[in-house]
């Protein structure tokens, strides 16, 4: 998985891409707030018009619908346990879970749309202009910079394991994969130390600022 998985189309020249990043960020924040705050009854009525509006924006931007849909579906399973727990433990669980799924889907869809039509650095610059906490911006920047590097390292380790593990069965594979995760954690920790050293050498004060 590479950076282009998310922002492959963020450099296009459509009218949506040319819009100020601030307007796009505000639009998405507003949409997510509306989707979160609205009673379930309204959400079920608004979901189709909202989806149509997002798809229209997508078509104008020239970003393939498939691209955004695929990325939305990658994230969606992460909230599946919450939806399932809701349907089991809450009164009117099924209705509640359906609304929650719609809210989640549309929120994630709009966020993926945002990163598909806005360069990551523009989003960060805008947040910085809005006096978003510097430490948060640094965390987001580092996540963007290093997430794919780490997944790349993990892919290499998995490939190495596959080449040497032959017909290993499930319980053992599970054990191997947990060890891979542990090694990845150690590697990330060591990398973090080295990155921190590089930052110190260029004036970082260790508290989100410079000295």
């Amino acid at each position: 998985m590479r950076h282009s998985f998310w922002d492959h189309f963020s450099g296009l020249e459509s009218p949506i891409h040319k819009l100020s990043p601030g307007i796009k960020i505000l639009f998405v924040i507003l949409l997510v707030i509306i989707l979160t705050m609205l009673p379930g009854y309204y959400v079920s009525y608004l979901s189709i018009p909202l989806l149509l509006m997002l798809i229209t924006i997508l078509i104008i931007s020239g970003v393939p619908v498939k691209h955004v849909m695929k990325r939305t579906l990658v994230i969606l399973p992460l909230i599946l346990p919450v939806i399932l727990l809701n349907s089991i433990f809450m009164e009117s669980g099924l209705n509640h879970s359906l609304t929650l799924s719609v809210r989640s889907f549309l929120s994630i869809f709009s966020l993926v749309l945002l990163v598909s039509v806005t360069k990551f650095s523009d989003i960060m610059k805008t947040l910085s202009k809005w006096h978003f906490p510097r430490i948060m911006i640094m965390i987001l920047t580092f996540m963007y910079r290093y997430f794919f590097l780490l997944t790349g390292e993990m892919e290499k380790m998995i490939r190495a394991v596959k080449l040497r593990s032959g017909n290993t069965r499930w319980p053992e594979i599970f054990k191997i994969y947990s060890q891979i995760l542990a090694i990845l954690f150690i590697k990330s920790y060591e990398r973090a130390e080295r990155v921190y050293n590089a930052m110190l050498m260029r004036g970082y004060d260790g508290n989100g600022g410079l000295q």
Binding site: S121, R194, A198
Partner: peptide, 11 residues
Amino acid sequence: FQNPDDQLFMP
């Protein structure tokens, strides 16, 4: 530093 990915920490 030896590994440029440790040093180029900005996007």
